[in-house]
C-alpha cells in the first residue's frame, strides 16, 4: 500500500520512468528492506494509472521502459490525504506476550525466564539495528531508530510486567 504513495511522492518532484522510480525508491525508502522488484513497480504504476492518480507520457519506441509517468492533481490530493491520516497502532505483539505470560503463570512455569528470553531476543535485533544505524547514513538512522524505539517500548512494557509478576500470579492462581 505505502509503495504506491511513495511512488506518487517521488513523482511530485517531476515525471519519471519506471526504472528511475525504482532506483529512487530503493535509495530513499529502501533502507533496511529488500529492493523493490520491477514487477511490483509496474503493477503499482498500473494501479495508479487505473485510478487516475498518474498519467503516461509515451515516448518513441515501445515497452514499459519507454513510458514516463507524471502525477495528476488527484494523485497529489491522494498523497496529502494519506499523510494527514494517522496509522492504526498495532498492539499484536503485546497480546501474544501477554498470553504467554498468563499461560506460564497458569502452568507454574517461571515467567521471569520468559521475560528474560524475550528481552534477549529483542536486544539481538536492537544490536543489529544499532550497528546498521552506526554504519549507515541519516536515512538508515531514521528508519532504524523508528524500529528501535518500538522494540524499546515492548521491553519497557515487559519490564513493567516483570515487576508486577507477583501481583499477576496471585490473581491467576486464585
Amino acid at each position: 500500500m505505502s509503495v504506491g504513495f511513495a511512488l506518487l511522492g517521488l513523482l511530485e518532484n517531476g515525471p519519471a520512468h519506471g526504472y528511475d522510480l525504482k532506483r529512487n525508491y530503493d535509495e530513499r525508502f529502501g533502507a533496511g528492506r529488500a529492493p523493490l522488484h520491477y514487477g511490483q513497480v509496474y503493477s503499482t504504476l498500473a494501479r495508479l494509472l487505473k485510478h487516475g492518480l498518474v498519467e503516461v507520457e509515451s515516448e518513441p519506441g515501445d515497452g514499459p521502459d519507454r513510458k514516463r509517468y507524471a502525477i495528476t492533481d488527484a494523485g497529489i490530493t491522494d498523497v496529502a490525504d494519506w499523510l494527514a491520516r494517522p496509522e492504526k497502532p498495532e498492539p499484536y505483539l503485546q497480546s501474544t506476550l501477554f498470553t504467554k505470560i498468563i499461560l506460564a503463570l497458569m502452568t507454574g512455569r517461571d515467567a521471569n525466564d520468559l521475560l528474560d528470553t524475550q528481552r534477549h531476543e529483542h536486544l539481538r535485533l536492537m544490536r543489529e539495528l544499532t550497528r546498521r544505524k552506526t554504519d549507515g547514513d541519516l536515512a538508515d538512522a531514521l528508519i532504524c531508530d523508528h524500529a528501535l524505539f518500538h522494540l524499546e517500548a515492548d521491553l519497557r512494557w515487559l519490564e513493567l510486567t516483570a515487576a508486577r509478576l507477583d501481583q499477576l500470579a496471585e490473581g491467576i492462581t486464585r
Binding site: N112, R119, H120, M126, R127, L129, T130, L151, E152, L155
Partner: peptide, 23 residues
C-alpha cells in the same frame, strides 16, 4: 543501564534481579 536502546550498543547483556545475576 536500564535502557534497552543504550544496551543495544553492547555485545552481551546480563540481567541483575534481587541481587543476583540471572543470565
Amino acid at each position: 543501564t536500564h535502557e534497552a536502546r543504550v544496551a543495544a550498543y553492547s555485545d552481551r547483556e546480563a540481567v541483575v534481579r534481587d541481587g543476583r545475576v540471572r543470565e
